[in-house]
Design a binder for these strands. Sequence first.
RNA 1: GCCCCGGUGGUGGAAUUGGUAGACACGCAGGACUUAAAAUCCUGUGGCGGCAACGCUGUACGGGUUCAAGUCCCGUCUGGGGUACCA
Length: 1006
Amino acid sequence: MEYHFKEIEKTWQAYWAKHKTFAAKDGGDKPKYYVLDMFPYPSGAGLHVGHPLGYIASDIVARYKRHKGFNVLHPMGYDSFGLPAEQYAIQTGQHPKITTEQNIARYREQMDKIGFSFDWDREVRTSDPEYYKWTQWIFIQLFNSWYNKQTQQAEPIETLIQYFETKGFNCKLDDTLTGDIEHELPAFTANEWKQFSEKQKSDVLMNFRLAYLGEAYVNWCPVLGTVLANDEVKDGVSERGGHPVERKLMKQWSMRITAYAQRLLDGLDGIDWTESLKEAQRNWIGKSEGCSLKFTIQNSTETIEVFTTRPDTIFGVSFVTIAPEHELVNKITTAQQKQLVDDYVTKAKNRSERERQADITKITGVFTGAYVLHPFTGNQIPVWVGDYVLAGYGTGAVMAVPAHDERDFRFAKHFSLPITQVIEPTISHDFEKDAWGEKDGVLINSDFLNTLPVKQAIKRAIEEIEKRGFGKGKINYRLRDAVFGRQRYWGEPIPVYYKNDIPYVLSENELPLVLPEVDKYLPTEDGEPPLARASSFKKDGEYAYEFSTMPGWAGSSWYFLRYMDPKNSQQFVNKDLANYWQNIDLYIGGSEHATGHLLYVRFWTKFLKDRGYIPVDEPAKKLINQGMIQGRSNVVYKVVGVWGGSNLTEEESEEISNVISKLPELFISKGHYDVITKYNNLVESNTPIDEEFRNKYNYISNEIEKKQEEYYKSTKSKIPKDDFWFSLGINSLVTQNVDVNIVQNDILTIEAFRKWRKYYENAEFILEDGKYICGVIDNEKMSKSKYNVVTPDSICEKFGADTLRLYEMFLGPLEQSKPWNTNGITGVHGFLKKLWRLFYQTGSFSVSDEAATKAELKVLHKTIKKVIEDIERFSFNTSVSTFMICVNELTDLKCNKRAILEPLLICLSPYAPHIAEELWKQLGHQDTITFEPFPECNESYLVDDSFNYPISFNGKTRFNLELAATLSPQEIESLVMAHENTIKYLDGKPVKKVIVVPKKIVNVVL
RNA sequence: GCCCCGGUGGUGGAAUUGGUAGACACGCAGGACUUAAAAUCCUGUGGCGGCAACGCUGUACGGGUUCAAGUCCCGUCUGGGGUACCA
């Protein structure tokens, strides 16, 4: 009987669904194991073969852990709010809900065909009101919390109110507070607090809430009509669609993720994520230690506060630069400079982020006319405005030390400002050409800091600055608070309403706040978000709800918790269940989420832990980034027919175009194309062409001429024959993409090609070796227009899901990106057929109950050992090889023994579950193979009696020598030295020493 | 610029702690079976030389450490990813 994968796979997929084989139990004696994939956004294009890569890997681990006796939670769901469905709705009017449901159905159908062991009863969808009810609920908890710096955790807002009621508030004294509000919030006493109006209280508390309404510079995308997060902007344009983005000051709901900056940094040390991913997060958080320092403005009580990491260079300050957006720009600018400064500021503001980034070498700035006083020397220091200083980072002002900072140096040179060296570098350095920015050297020209090395000077400077009250040691983060509102329709409504201009959150029993129906999915004529179109979208029919919706990352920041308790209508997750499942043991997904999703989900997890809802403060213990599978396109090379007659009548021209349009297309194989291209290049560059190569070219050109003749005859045209030819000129061969699904091993399936498009119906080919070989373009994105999309369904149809699973793993290391290429798939498919034949050696199913031989046991246990090792280190490609070796060896041994084949099937079942189940059943088992204990390696079968030693001389292996494993190194040495080959290679030379590494190598040093 | 990860046959890749480089698979060449095709099986396959035994050479390049280096160290080139007037 043949291996009929289609029936087998259909049968077992139905069996698993019917028996709910993969349903996770909430508790029990088994240890738990939680394997999670980053859930997909269900796009209209469906899944291509790249998407399941990570799912297959996680599925192998999930199934392996079930064999290992774990209670495995392996769920799947959909991140189903998002822009594409909304854009589609804008174009077609179809409700995004419907689009989303259709896409989900398609995704599900595709995933089911691959045989994943997901617990589908736990499916979640972020756009489901029963789900986003709890996303809204978490928002409310964030709104009702503040971050206490002393306890280093989030607390209920009530504790802060109590604090205000008893102690009032003074930002100069209270270290308790979060964010940058030390600069902004005026002090008040406990009594004043009690006198505050509700609005005043609300405004004050807004500075502390973890979800807050605040004014901030945001990335505004006019084309999309919405605000974008930093990680949604790439190179100054929107990540989705590539539309320009500008900076705009807006009132926005935001998340105070900055409060967690230090903990997000520290938490990285305790989790097993790749170093590159941790680095990306560290960079994103961007911690820098230094101090804040106030410069008093001359003839004023105002100060400019700067942040610097180099307080040691304080005596080298020659000017201060503030950002164009800085609030003091207007106040300090002198009358003479006003016009210049105003012009500059306007220009700078209109310059998009992209432009600013584009020409960083272009130095612009303008003097304000104002001076500040140096805190130590009292010297006058000019204040400049320059757009190299960013309003959003630090205090939006810098003290410029041109001798020791690259950008300050360029600025000073450009405007001829003084440059004062205050550090003597460790190596010679030309201060005319360059700044010395290294934290190395000894301080000079610096009063009390003189003679100190830089690192000590930094400490000493901060001490002195603090002592004299000029500023204080401070840590700055690059991380910004996350903007939480989007002016879009297809997202979670923010559960907030406004009463007397005060925002209030809904109470729990009012959730979910369901997305209202609207007539159009566009902003209103007044520029309000789409939700403003729903006239009845008001609390109690009276108070307007917030019109912004949540960003894409809201629902995904906690979904891993919902899988633990997906149907709970009372809580987002039951506490006992959260305690049982803890966090994700293995999380697999793409590296594109390094600074977006993975930062936000860590933030929300820490918050929920702080508030006592869950027991863990990191979402995932171990994380693997699967590589991207890129497209690989195939192309065919078309030869174009040309009519070259001159002085044609109109009639003739018409006939020509008529005839040409009816001619069959002619294609030449890749080898021919290469020859012609090379030939053309040689001719072009006047390079001499050798005989052999010219012959090759002539052969092809003759072949084409024959076709030409044929074509000409078939047209029965009156036009002279010489006027018609196929052009082989340098630019006249046309490269056309061809559907990769009708190409096998880069060989075009000609029949399929002729059927593929009507106009290729009669296509003709000039073959090489009887085949049409296509060209290849690697590393393109998979896209419809390139005809290089390969769906998992098409592979399942041709080769089966087990082949797809094995092949995707066999392609290479999981974490590596690679182009999709079906070339080797027959090898993997052949392996499964070979496995099948082990059970059908006699033609029908037959398995022997005889005891296994030593050789057979060795093959089996070698395989078990390797497969366990490989899974534990997530090296799935090598275990596929191991299975191949195993089956090859068992085939050589003609082994059909149950004692060998049964354990082998269990080992293979995580990788190729359908065939394993089927053969397991044929072996007479009633139950699924899923929970069979994974075989254990018995080392005693692996012990060899002898070892084949490579004998090397000065590190070069010369011959091999089979020696008993029990020999001592001394015995080995004397046997080797006495061997005739040794004597031959020594050639009478003296031996310096002999290295014997048991069971590895013998090296004779001459 | 800075940070991270890579560079191994015609191709994808293996070599886990420094110990026979190229496992496994594709492709290619030759052969068996077959009317033929498919399927299956066998042999060979880094390069150079040689009928062969075998020799030389070889993991981007140049050095170094070591009895021994794809693996460790230094420098250079190069590909990919992240990030940036971040003070």
